[in-house]
Design a protein around this nucleic acid. Sequence first.
DNA 1: CTTAGTTACCCACATTTACCCACTATGGCG
DNA 2: CGCCATAGTGGGTAAATGTGGGTAACTAAG
Lengths: 145, 145
Amino acid sequence: MFIGNYANTMDEKGRVNIPAVFRDALRKDYDDERMVITRDIRDACLRMYPMHEWQSFLEALKKIPSSNPTLRRIQRRVVSSAIECMADKQGRVLLPISLREHAQLSKTVQFAGSSNTVEIWDEKLWQHEIEDDAIDPDMLEQLGI
Amino acid sequence: MFIGNYANTMDEKGRVNIPAVFRDALRKDYDDERMVITRDIRDACLRMYPMHEWQSFLEALKKIPSSNPTLRRIQRRVVSSAIECMADKQGRVLLPISLREHAQLSKTVQFAGSSNTVEIWDEKLWQHEIEDDAIDPDMLEQLGI
DNA sequence: CTTAGTTACCCACATTTACCCACTATGGCG
DNA sequence: CGCCATAGTGGGTAAATGTGGGTAACTAAG
């Protein structure tokens, strides 16, 4: 399970440290340190999938008829820009420029656990995202939480 | 079951002692000392979930379609700010700065039992919360209590 | 084959966190 | 009233984590 958010800095080479708790989660929960990082479908951030979750995602895509134009977009934007990687001995991964640009990553990078995946945001966009504009209580009621 | 409220002091490192009765409740009622602490959805306080209750909460979230924008807000604010932890040998946990800030915790911290979770308030906000501005009797009537 | 650019790996340092020990305060009980 | 057990608090230290930079291996283009 990936929970919590952690800020790490990306160096000029484009390397960022994956927070240790998330690396632990990969090892303990999935028994596989491989991960896939790619553009998020909905937002201006990246998303890290443990290999197993990525496979499930691909399976879900396979169920969509290939005539569906949205599917083809997702294929191109998400699948085609994905990288498979593992953290190096220092716990870091190298993010290719294309991914960095998509998420507008500059220096400080936010890793945000999202139960079975991890979101990767530029600090500024992240701050904006979690700003305290109240969540509608009726909506919460409706969702049963 | 968590009931009652207890004040403990947070030190400069951000450590606070979890009241012993609540630690006992974790051990006895849940047989699992792990807990998750995160921002409360509604109020300016933190909320401590026994691991089991947290899992239930996540299950409830999974039932909501991920296209729902409120869900994604909750994911980011609640799931992404959560920490999984256990009390150390002295019975304390370390609260990260982001959580301390959200609940405006300074020195004295109030732990308030709330049946299956525990609320964590800054003393001042807590005082304000339990002030005697009357509860509307009609509302009570309506709620059947 | 050579060379420039990129990537992977290694070492060293700074910072943070987890863990341990010791002391104080409080409440129950004889 | 004093003793003991438990709860809570403060601080020191070793280990873990994160960061910066250097060098060797690799890749791709000329």
